[in-house]
Amino acid sequence: MYPAAFEVTKARTLDEALAKLADLGDDGRVLAGGQSLIPMMKLRVAAPTHLVDINEIPDLDGIKQVNGHMSVGALARHADVVRADVANHTVAAAAPWVADPVVRNRGTMCGSIAHCDPEGDWNSVMLAVRAQVVATSSSGERVIPIDEFVKDFFTNSLQEGEMVTEVRVPNYAGAGGGDYLKLERKIGDYATVAVAIHLDLAGDGTIAQAGVALTAVNHVNTRASDAEAILVGNAPSEELFAAAADAAAAAADPVSDIRGPAEYKRDVVRVFTRRGLASALAKAQD
């Protein structure tokens, strides 16, 4: 299949890209990894009139530690995240399950985050770890908490002329652990259900911070706030995790489709949350 015709700007610097995006307004679309955008264009589900290709911009591909967080640049590919020595367990667990190995060589974490596909993995991970998204435009930079960034079904909170230039994953304050459990039908498939788990333990072993976020079971990646509230401040136990798992399942409102009925998906959320909390705890205590 072939995309519709479009115009392109091959930006050589970030400033050039931002100026062009400002200029184009609604008509402009950033081309980073392109692994979601190009298939949509080939199927003519998307037909942007002007692409701003950022792939040749230097220094956007970094994955580095800065000021208590891991910074992932706009051109860091999923494969770069897989290879990097990532301290955050949730990120490390999710990276190998994004798309397939060849797509991971091209697709970018920031691009996936901006795409806001509710079946995408990264936004659940970022919700669980309470990441921040850096949006840059020709008039400056905004640091957006992930909860505000992920707005709706395929909808982010970027404003006209802005692009995602960086994602920030905070480091664990104490002993931390995390996991990402994904039910997919085969490699390369989107999640039928996935659950991102994040735990940060206080010195006394109680849960200081918890993240539970769900993929593909709502119209947008979702934080299971009730599950988190059950966990925070308490000592980890099987009973606690089971209660949190029930709360996480209650936060899922999936559709019944070819991948299974809603009750099934909700139950997998429960099972995955319970299992993910146990493995996150083990990693935190390791």
Binding site: D100, R185, K186, I187, G188, D189, Y190, I258
Partner: peptide, 16 residues
């Protein structure tokens, strides 16, 4: 038809 492309018509990879 549910299964009109390789995202919905599932062909196993080496992994499965």
């Amino acid at each position: 038809c549910i299964g009109s492309n390789f995202m919905d018509y599932l062909v196993p990879t080496a992994y499965e």
